[in-house]
Design a binder for these strands. Structure first.
Lengths: 200, 200, 200, 200
DNA sequence: AATGAATGAGCGTTCATTCAT
DNA sequence: TATGAATGAACGCTCATTCAT
């Protein structure tokens, strides 16, 4: 593969060294984030990303040598948004009610969307390479388990199963927020209640 | 598209008139169902469907003039599985407990999977044309609303919102059952509880 | 790689099942053979092969899923031309003079060119995969060693080194024949003499 | 091509006027020479040359407006290495034996390789423009003819044909030296003998 | 009616070269 | 002058769909 050409060039994003390039990169990331969020990883084309961000295809590839890498960078960049957000919720989980925690979780999802943190939609794209996705998934699961185990002396045996379900609930919250702008708030409230009851 | 040629010829599947053709069609549908279920609509190739069902590509297109139509036929054919299943649940909903209904819903999803009824994974493939998807979505929503409104004299104002959430919960059940064979049962139980609490 | 799509589809040439396809394949192989011979493997594009053989690019790829495979098929198809030719020369080598053998070798190269057997130009294209090239190289080396050892009871210690040189002489004969049509015959005679002296 | 812009600006390398620039140019030439020698003209990218010589791509193009020109400069610069070397051999050819001359020729090839004089690999890159290649080829041919004609009052009629073959033998010597480090010396000795016999 | 060959737009990606700071 | 960003034609390849036998 890429090693044929040059072992020295890592299959990683190239950092721009000038302001112009940094702007480009931001524009690309924002566009890609939106598109991935709208249509999913596979359905988005590099050409589309280039066009929507007014970037020449060659420039896009200068900074992001593959579509995979582009997704990886988004994951890397926004990964901490999720984990930090979850950490904060974990921190307050001891004293908070199920309702409060649910509100925080849904609020987190809403914030992620405002910040274009596409983590949730990209997290289980199946692509070879890059252990990042798994790492992020694990990191989220770990926090969610803690949230589920809050206040208990012994964590429940089915903690990991429940964390998976909870993760899916967060993805559901994301999807619902995107789908129907008019119903958005009502749906959000519903999911919040749902999550609260799951945490209870 | 195909409308370019002739408005008169509908983009619909051609019904085979002989036994041989009927078998072919069955094989194709079964294969397509499996593949769509495994990898999603977009990731499946017509060639792949042809090969896995030992059908010549030309024959495949004879019966199903586009990939869209193929999905549509699956939706149409298996749509009634879902609606019928939901109808049955609606019928018993008056006297059943939330737990029972939840069990029935999850059981329905499980059954759909064994019958290769790909309805859930295909229901929101975004493709132009074909109002079928919307119709099916509406049909499901309607039943789910009834389930949510069971036993009440006036249906709750937020019934439609709640039905959307419930529909997503069913999709979630489908996804979880596919994802982790080892955890399958445990996850199923979790979702069941979740749904029960949402119905309660 | 290709395994992502389907393990069942081997990365090998697909055999056409109809006459039309068989003709296509012949046309493609002939064109590819000419082009590889003229400009070398790397410099030839699949588009070029398609155009020169009046084949749609999709059709080209139907029969030859990669450029590599196309070269491989040529090697496979024409490989025996070389080895058979060399075998014949080996068979007569016991009684023949160095001059005669040289004449035969150069004649073989000429024949290969008339038959468009691109073996010589393709034999050391460096591509991952496909042990065919190595096998062919070994097969040729083996025959050439026998030719060099003809009439001797014990093969010379440097037989393999000399075989390499002899192989390069054959490649040289090929190149010279292509390069200068006007000098072709004279050059051929020269190389023949050169090879004869190397065999002496 | 570049001629599209301005006929006035020759497609020639720009000579740097400061020490820093001269060093840059040296680094570029050395790197390019190595790469061309390793992988051949076509397989080497300008970006690669820039990176391996720690030069910005823009700077590379400042000194060498096209890849062609870069090869041309190498040819020009190292052309004299070959011709001078051949001249020296021509000078001594009158009294030297075929063996000695062969040894000198092979020695010259070896020296060229240590000096990174990529002349031989680049000499018949087929690119439009630049008569330099032809000139160099002619210059070499001329010297080789003299070597072949040494000691004779009338040059043989087939002198030019033989010179072509001899030139190919030198290229062969170059290729063999690169190919198999372990066999290098043995192969060199073989070619030397071969050339000697061709000169005899 | 059944089959497999033909088609071509489009995809992800590369690379020589030019532009702007 | 030096640098790195910008450009876009071209490449190898895929795939939904149509054609011809």
């Amino acid at each position: 593969m890429s090693s044929q050409k040059s072992m020295a060039l890592p299959d990683a994003a190239v950092a721009p060294k000038r302001q112009r390039g940094r702007d480009r990169v931001e524009a690309i990331l924002a566009t890609a984030s939106d598109l991935f969020s709208e249509k999913g990883f596979d359905a988005v084309t590099m050409t589309e990303i280039a066009q929507r961000s007014s970037t020449a295809i060659g420039s896009l590839y200068r900074f992001f040598p593959t579509k995979e890498v582009l997704a990886g960078v988004l994951l890397q960049r926004y990964g901490s948004h999720v984990t930090d957000g979850l950490d904060a919720i974990v921190a307050g989980a001891g004293t908070a009610s199920a309702r409060d925690i649910a509100a925080s979780l849904v609020g987190l999802v809403r914030d992620l969307q405002t910040e274009r943190s596409v983590v949730l939609p990209l997290i289980d794209v199946q692509n070879d390479g890059i252990a990042l996705r798994q790492a992020l998934r694990d990191a989220m699961r770990e926090r969610l388990e803690k949230i589920l185990a809050r206040g208990r002396t012994t964590p429940p045996a089915d903690g990991s199963t429940r964390a998976i379900v909870l993760l899916h609930l967060l993805k559901m919250a994301w999807a619902l927020a995107l789908a129907a702008p008019s119903l958005r708030d009502a749906l959000e409230r519903e999911v919040e209640g749902l999550i609260a009851s799951y945490l209870g």
